[in-house]
Design a protein around this nucleic acid. Sequence first.
DNA 1: GTAGGGTTAG
Length: 667
Amino acid sequence: MNKANRFFSTASPHFESLLRKYSASNSLSETKKIHALIITYGLFSSSQLCSKLATTYAQCHHVSYASQLFDKLPKRTLFSCNTMMRMYVQMGRPRDALNMFVEMFRSGRCLPDNFTYPIVIKACSELLFVDMGVGVHGQTIKAGFDLDTFVQNSLLAMYMIAREKEAAQLVFDLMEEPTVVSWNTLINGYFRNNCAEEALRVYSRMMDEGVGPDCATVVSVLQACGVLKNVELGREVHALALEKGFWGNVVVRNALLDMYVKCGQMKEAQLLLNGMNEKDVVTWTTLINGYVVNGDARSALMLCRMMQLEGVKPNLVSVASLLSACGDLVSLKHGKCLHAWAIRKDLDSEVVVETALIDMYAKCNDSNLSYKVFMKTSKKRTAPWNAVLSGFVHNRLARNAIQLFKQMLVENVRPDSPTFNSLLPAYAILADLKQAMNIHCYLIRFGFLCKLEVASMLVDIYSKCGSLGYAHQIFDIIPPKDKDIIIWSVIIAAYGKHGHGEMAVSLFNQMVQSGEKPNEVTFTSVLHACSHAGLVDEGLSLFNFMLKKYQVIPRVDHYTCIVDLLGRAGRLNDAYNLIITMPIAHNHAVWGALLGACVIHENVELGEVAARWTFELEPENTGNYVLLSKLYSSVGRWRDAENVRDMVNEVGLRKLPARSLVEVSNM
DNA sequence: GTAGGGTTAG
C-alpha cells in the first residue's frame, strides 16, 4: 500500500463529511478546494469519493465538472444519476436529463425509483414531450409508483403544461390523498389553460374539503380573480391571507396588488401599496403598469419618481411599462429621456425594451425613430416586428405595414396571433380586395383563421372592400357557440354601412336570441344601420329596448344615430327636441346629423341653429360650412350661400400648413 | 434528494 492510499484510508471519511457539509451549503469554492486536495493526494481511486464529488458539483450546478467526473465513475449509483438528471433539468438542459434516463433504462444498471420519476416527468413537460411523458406515466404504474404523491403531482403538472386538462383531472381524481400541492397544481393548471372559472370552482371544493390553503394557493386564486374581475372573491382571499399570516410573503402581497389592478380597483391598489412597509421592484411595477392599463399614464410616471425616491431601481419590465405610458401621453420628451436612461443602464438591447421603444415612438407619431430602433434590433424575434407593424398601422401607413410583413416572411420570422392583430387593420385601411384575398389565403394555410379575433378582422376587411358576401362567409365559418360580441358587432356594422338595415336588425335579433348580451358598441352599430336604411320605427324601438331591457346609459353616438334617424325621416323638430333634452352634453356630431337632415329637407330655420353649433364645436371642419352653403343654395338664397363659401376658404387656408406637415411626415 | 406560486412587449 503506497503512501497516498494509506493517507486516503484515514482521510477519506473526513473528506466525505466535508463534501457533505459543503454540498449542503452549495459552496462551489469549497467543493473546488476538496477537488484540488483529491487531485493533489491522488485519491481518484476511491469511487465513493469521486461519486460524492460529482454529485456535489451537480448540486452546486457546475455542469461541466459534474458531468466530467460522472462520466469517469466506474459505478453509477441511482442517487448520483438522479442528482445529475436534476441538475440538467434545473440548468435548463432537460434533453440531457432525458438522454441520461434513456441510457440508464437501456443499460439496466440501475432501476429508476420514486425520486427519478418526478425529475424525468419534469424534463418531459419542459420539452413538451407529451408522448414520452405518457410512456413514463405507464412505466410509473408498472413500477408501482403510481400512488406516490410526488410522482402524481409531477404528472398532474405535466398534463396541465401540455394543455391536457382531462388527463390532469384524471390523475387528480385517482389520487388517494391529494396534498395542498396537488390542489394548487390543479388550480394553477386550470388558470394557465384559460379556465379561470374552473380554477375557482376547484378552489371552492378544496375549501369545502377542509384542505388548508398556503401561499401558492392564494397567489393562483388571486390571479384567477384578476382575470375574471371577481373583486368580491379577491377581497375574501385578501382577508384569508391576512388571517393565515401570508402578508409577510412579498409574492402574496404583489399578487394581491395585481388582483386589485386587474379588477380596475386602482384606489384600493394604491391604498394597499401605501400600507406596505416593504416594496420591491415588482410591487412598484405592478402598480405602475396598473395605471398604464387603466388609462392613467400620468400617475404611472409620478409613481416612477416615488419609487426612485424610495431607492428602488426600475428594471426592464418597469421601463417597458413606463415607455408605454409615454406613448399613451404622446410625450416624445419623456419617452426620449427613458430611452437615454435605458441606454445608460444597458437595457436598450433587451427585446421587451426594444419592443416598447418601437411602440412608444410610433404612438408619439414618430415613425422614423420607431423604424430606426427596429433596424437596430436583431430582427430575429417576432415581438419587435409586431410593434413596428402596429406602429405603421397606427400612423395609417398601411402599404408600409404590408410590405414589412412580406419582408418578415422573407427573413423567416414566424408570425404569431399578435402579428395579425397588428397587421390586419392595414388591409381594412387599404380596402383592396385582391390584397385581402391574398392574406385570407395565408391565414387559412397557416391555421390562423380559427382565431376568433383574426376572423372578426377579416369580416371587417371584406366589408371595407365592399364584399359583404365574403364577409358573411367568414362569419358563418365560426360555430355559433364560439361567436362573441365583437364578431357580431362587426357583421352588424358591415350590413349597416352598406345600407342593408333589415339584415343588420335581423342579425342583431339573432344575436340576442343566441344569448349574447348586446353592449354599447352593438347598439351603436344597429342604430346606425337603421338610420342609414331609414328604418325609423325599428331604430326607435331598439333605442327604447336598449334603455329599458338592458339599461344601457346612452352615449352621445347613440343620440347621434337617433337624431340622424329622425332627421332623415323628416321629423326635424323631434330630432331638435331630442338634442336639447338629452341628459348628456351634446357635441358636433349630433348637431352635424341634424344639419345634414335639414339640408335634405330644406329646413333653413333649424339648419342655421344646427350649423351655428357645429361652427362653435368644430370650427375647423369645412364640411359643415359646405352643408350650410348647400342648404342656402337649395332654397335660392344665393348670397348667403356665397358668404358661407367664403368662410370655407378661410378655414381651408388656416388648415393648410397642418395638412402639409402630415404629408411630409408620411413621405 | 422529489411536486405547485408574482410583475413584462405586441
